[in-house]
Structures are given as C-alpha cells and as structure tokens.
Design a protein around this nucleic acid. Structure first.
Lengths: 142, 142
DNA sequence: TATTGTTATACTCTATAACTATA
DNA sequence: TATAGTTATAGAGTATAACAATA
C-alpha cells in the first residue's frame, strides 16, 4: 500500500512540476516582476515575503532569500528607491534595521500576487468537481 | 457557477504555488543541479529540456530558455565539457548545430529529474485516497 | 541579403572580505 | 568580544553588437 501511495505521489508531483516549470509560469513570473515595477526576480521574492504587520530585519530577509546580507542591502536600496519599503531602526536594538512595507509596496505586492496566483490555462481542462476537489486537497498542503 | 469555479481554481493554484515557491523546493532545485553536476540552474533547465530522441538546435534551446543565443553557446560549452552533450552539424543545413544528449547526459538528467520529482513532505498530510485523487487530476493537466 | 552560431565585450546579480556602529 | 548592517570589490550569469560561415 505504501508503495502504491509513493508512486501516486510521485506521479502527482511530477505532473504539477511540469506545469510550474513550463513556459506559461516562466513568463508569468517575469510579468509579475514587471507589473510591480521591480527590477529582478530576487527583489520580487523579497517583496512577497514582506508583511506590513510584521516587519523583518535585514538579516531575516537574507535568511528568507538564502542570500548574503550584503545583497539584501542593495535589494532594499532598490525597493526603498521605488518607495515600496522603509528602513526603520529597531527600538529594542539600535543595530537592527526593520524593513517596513509601505502602502505603495503593499499595493505592488498585491499586483504581483494577483498575477502569480492566476491559474494557468491547463486548469480549464478540469471539470467543476475536479477543480473543487483540487482546491480542497491543495488547502491541506499548506 | 463560473464565478465559484474561478475562485476554487485561484485557491487551488495559490496553495500549490506556496508549496513550489517554498524553501523545500528552493533547496531541492539547487540539490538537483548539484546532483547532476551542473554548475547553475540555467544549465539544469537546458538539460531537462533535452531529449536524446529529438536533438534541438542552438536556437531552439535559446527559445526554450528564453535567453540570448550567445548565452546558449557558453551553456552548451559547459555541458559539452562535462560530457553530457555533443554538438553535431545538421545534415540538412550546415549552419545549424544540433545538441545531442549523450548517455552520460541522459543519466545525469534522470538523476536531476528524480530529485526534483520527489514530492515534498507536505504530501504526507494527505490520505491515500486524496493522493490518488490528486494524481488523477494532475495527470489531466499535462 | 538573411540566418545560424560564435567571439568580444559589457552589464546585472550575487558573494566575500574588510569596516562601522552598537551591544 | 560578538553581532547588524554597509561598503568596496570580485565573480558568476546573461545580454548586445560585430563577425564568419552558410543559405
């Protein structure tokens, strides 16, 4: 039983991967970066991880992105120049800078998010019941 | 009805996107590049698009990757140095070079593919029936 | 003349190392 | 002394422009 399960899981994931690594998603990712006015995908990912309610320190952003802290400096410079983000010194530790998403940044993030979360055309091939079933299953995954 | 359908599709896709853009997949993609001995993700994607039965021209590879033709030159140089790929002049047009995947290249591609298609741990949360259902639906998408 | 691929070159993205300020 | 962030610098990844060979 565990064996058939593993096989089904592999097949499911393989099919989904093909969709995500396909041309449509590749294009959409670049469209999203352009739509929110951000120069490169790295900056886009940084934006998507930011939440106005919970500002993150430069170092935390570096960990989110798995990149060097020095690169976060230039990334946040770019976002600040666009008015999407603000650096504020942390009240509890004056070495720490917290990256706050501005209202403009929030709007840009929403635009990018919309563009990315629009499902690819392949989903049109599913019946209504299948779509609902997929939504229910996917919800359990997060 | 079309409205509820769209909503369900958006929810499903959003949840799946979160998985794909999450840390586990990010790490796995780099692991796959390393496992197949390829220097950077661009070269990995080039490999994954190559099929020994249907060699592609340099220009086609550039279109697959949406990058400049000159970059394909250096990409294929790297892969050729690794023994994963061979350039052969096309019999029908001597300007064209066809990129053939070698047996070593095919093996490396398979290793990368295995690593990428291993489902993330989140799928453990699904029941056997849900996994099978997901596999059936995903198969319709490709 | 138009097209395929390469070379030479330059620009962008990202990391390493040395530095400043605060703890 | 150790840690957060920045600066200066160097390296990888990718594009643009000019070129050679073939069509």
């Amino acid at each position: 039983m565990t064996d058939g399960r593993r096989e089904a899981a592999g097949a499911a994931w393989g099919a989904l991967s093909a969709l995500f690594f396909g041309d449509e998603m590749h294009d959409r990712f670049h469209d999203a970066a352009e739509a929110c006015g951000v120069p490169h995908p790295g900056a886009l990912k940084a934006m998507l991880n930011l939440d106005p309610a919970e500002p993150r320190s430069m170092r935390m952003v570096a960990e989110d992105l798995r990149c060097d802290a020095s690169y976060v400096t230039s990334l946040v410079d770019d976002l600040e120049r666009l008015g999407y983000v603000e650096r504020r010194v942390s009240p509890s530790d004056r070495r720490v800078k917290l990256v706050h998403l501005t209202p403009e940044g929030e709007a840009a993030k929403a635009r990018a998010h919309d563009s990315l979360s629009t499902p690819p055309k392949a989903l049109d091939r599913l019946s209504d019941a299948e779509i609902r079933s997929l939504a229910r299953i996917a919800a359990k995954l997060t």
